Amino acid sequence: MNRPYRIYNMATPSAHPDGDSWFRIKNAAPAEGATAQPLEVELYDGIGNWGIRAADFLRELREADDGQREIHVGINSLGGDVFDGLAIHNFFRRLGNRLTVRVDGVAASIASVIACGAARLVMPDNTMLMIHNPWLWAGGEAEDLRNMADMLDKSKANLIACYRNKAPGMGEQELSDMMDETTWLSAQEALALGLVDEVLGGVAMQASAGRLASLGRLQNVPAPWLASVSAKNAPIEPAKPVVDPEPVVEPTPAPQPASDAPAVAALAKLAAQLCNAAGLDGQAVESVMTHTALASEKAVRDGVANMVAVRDLCKVAKLPEMSASLIASGMSADAARARLFDKLVANAGEELDNRLPEEAGVAPKKGPNPVDVYANRRAAKRQPANSR
C-alpha cells in the first residue's frame, strides 16, 4: 500500500533532462585467465519515484552481483525520497568491504546518506557532499500536520544515525545544526569530519541543464562550485578570425614546487583520527585544522593534545558547557584555565580577595594551641568543687 505522504531530502525536483536512463550497471565478463573486474554501477539521478527507485535498482544489482566481486558505485545525485534512500543505504552497509562508493560530482541530501552506507567512501577533490533537513508537501487538518511534523523529526533522527555510523566522532547536535544550515562540504572537509575515507585527484564533473536548475533551488551552494558546473552549459561563442601574431619568445618557466596536497590530506586525516580517538567532535577537528594550518604532524598532535587538556579542565571545573567554545577558539590550556577560574568566581556571586593577609592589612587569626588547652584542663581538675 502506498504511503499517504512522501518525505524528501533533495532540491525541488525539475523535469528529468537525460531521457529514461536512471542508473547503469556494467557487468563486464573478465578475459580468460584475468581476475574478475569490479561490478561498476552509476547512480546519476534523483532517488525515488521520479528517478532511481530502490526496488528496481536493488533487484538489478542483486541479479548482476555474484557475491564475490568488488562493487564500485559512482554517485552524482541531488537526492530524493528518504525511504528509498534509506533502503539503498542499508543494502550498501550489508555489502561490507566489497563496496566502494565514489562521488563523481555531488552527493546531496539523501544521496549523501546513500554514499555514507559504503564501507569505503572516496571523493575527488573537486566534488561536494551536502546535508540538510528532510521536507515534504503537506496538506490536511491540524492534527494531520502535527503528525507529519513528528514524522519529519523522526526522519531527521534516522538520517543523523546514518551519518554517525560512518563518522561516530560527530555529535548529534553538531550534525543537526549542520542540517539546519544546509551545509556543503568539500572533499577535504568531509575527510576531516570522518565522513570520507580518501580524497582523490579531480575528475571532470558531470553536469546537465536539469541538474543546474535544481542546484539553483538549493541554499548555500558554494559560488565557485556552482560556477564550475555552469561553465559546462555556457553557450559557445562564434569563432573569431585568426590573425597571425608577431612571434613572441616565451621565457622558460621556473620549476614549480611539487604539490603538497597529499601531505595536507594526510594531516587532515590524522587530525580527524586523533580527535575521534580522544572523543572530540567534528568541531574540534575543524579547530585543529584552522589553528595549526596543518603545518606539520607535530603541530597537529600538539593541537589535539591541547584540546584534550582544555576539555578535561572544563570537566574538572564542572563547566563542560564551556568546552565547545574554548576548543573552537583554539585557546591554550593555560588561557582556558584562567578563563574557567574567572567563570567560577563570577558564579560564586562575590568578589574574592586573593591578596596576602599582610598586604590586606588584616592580622592573621591565631588558632587554638593544644598545649594551652591541655594545661587549662589540668588546672580545672585541681580546683576544689566549692571554688567553682
Rank of each mutant, 00 (worst) to 15 (best):
E181G: 09
A346C: 15
E358C: 09
A333I: 09
P30F: 06
R24M: 11
A119I: 05
G117Q: 02
D45S: 06
P124K: 10
R337D: 04
L344S: 08
D104N: 11
K154F: 05
S14V: 15
L145C: 13
D150H: 12
H16M: 12
A317C: 13
E246W: 04
C162F: 02
P238N: 09
G194P: 01
A328K: 08
R53S: 09
G216L: 11
A293G: 10
V199K: 00
A309G: 05
G330A: 06
L356V: 13
D244G: 08
E181N: 14
E40V: 08
P253T: 10
G79M: 03
S77H: 03
G74Q: 05
I110S: 01
F341Y: 14
E198W: 04
N369E: 11
T12G: 09
A55F: 08
L274F: 02
D66N: 11
G282P: 00
S332C: 14
A207Q: 07
V113C: 04
N147D: 07
A119R: 06
R355K: 13
G279A: 09
A348S: 13
K269A: 07
P251Q: 15
P245A: 09
Y163Q: 04
R211W: 02
M148V: 08
S296F: 11
L86Y: 00
L274Q: 03
M289S: 05
A11Q: 01
P255W: 07
G361P: 05
K240H: 11
P235M: 10
R382Q: 08
W137Q: 10
L43I: 12
P370K: 13
A284S: 05
A363G: 07
E70D: 11
